[in-house]
């Protein structure tokens, strides 16, 4: 196994009085494509937010490339849940993608032509070039998700966190997004995705992290994606168990 790019030790996090994450420890190998799966309220999004310093941890140690988050911020890309923003905001697709370059552009400076060109290129990669100047409110859910992904692409990060990028998108978008993730993966990038569809885990991801407040199981998909682990993570409430031994 290659060297871990993310290492988490004894992480505890809570919302007000409710502990959401309990003693979470794991490490993510470089160049892996990992799915975080678990039932609603298992703490998947919280885990991602804590890793990205968007929500405070009570205790625990998190390192990226052996260093704390603040030192490696620029090497980390993030795709929030689509529903976390107001798509009625007055702006177009190209402008949203350009936001991914704000770190490069520098504070208080205006984006230049080359930045717009790079943003356009990213939209092209997501098959969205025709919608560059389209109002974001007029895009479909799948198109909005592609815009978000394009914004992450221009960041040219080494690690990508994506919170449910496949939730509520059409089949074409799902294919486009997965093709992009595989491409990123082929370039040696590490991708961590909060995922909700157990049926596609085996096809899409090489690593799985089963989470339900704590780590139930974590490893290569072929080793840990088993009926037993799914049942232990989801309890008795899982309807779909077909195809897994």
């Amino acid at each position: 196994m290659s060297q871990p790019v993310i290492s988490v030790k004894h992480l505890v996090a809570a919302y007000q009085k409710n502990t959401v994450l309990e003693n979470v420890s794991f490490s993510i190998p470089a160049g892996s494509l990992t799915a975080i799966v678990g039932p609603n309220g298992a703490g998947k999004s919280t885990l991602m937010k804590v890793l990205l310093n968007l929500h405070p941890a009570i205790t625990g140690d998190i390192t990226f490339f052996g260093r704390p988050f603040k030192e490696v911020k620029k090497r980390i890309g993030y795709v929030p849940q689509r529903g976390s923003v107001d798509w009625d905001f007055p702006t177009d697709a190209l402008d949203v993608v350009t936001m991914g370059l704000y770190g490069d552009i520098g504070w208080f400076k205006h984006p230049k032509k080359q930045h717009k060109a790079r943003a356009f290129e990213a939209l092209e990669k997501m098959g969205m070039q025709a919608y560059a100047h389209r109002q974001i409110s007029q895009l479909s859910g799948g198109q909005q998700q592609r815009v978000f992904l394009a914004r992450a692409l221009v960041q040219n990060a080494d690690i990508y966190f994506m919170d449910e990028p496949l939730a509520g998108v059409d089949a074409a978008t799902e294919r486009a997004i997965m093709a992009t993730l595989k491409k990123l993966n082929a370039l040696g990038k590490t991708v961590i995705v909060v995922h909700h569809d157990l049926q596609t885990v085996e096809d899409y991801f090489d690593h799985v992290l089963f989470l339900n407040q704590t780590i139930i199981s974590h490893g290569k998909t072929q080793d840990v994606f088993s009926k037993d682990n799914i049942r232990r993570t989801y309890g008795g409430n899982i309807r779909w168990l077909g195809g897994v031994d």
Binding site: K49, L52, N53, L54, K73, K74, I76, G77, Y78, P80, S84, V85, D86, F89, T91, V96, M99, G100, Y102, G103, I105, W107, F108, K109, H110, P111, R151, Q155
Partner: peptide, 20 residues
């Protein structure tokens, strides 16, 4: 002066935070 920063702050706080 902070036009670009205000824009991302208003549109997408969690992304704004993730880029520093």
């Amino acid at each position: 002066i902070g036009f670009k920063e205000w824009k991302i702050y208003l549109f997408d706080q969690s992304f704004a935070n993730s880029i520093g």
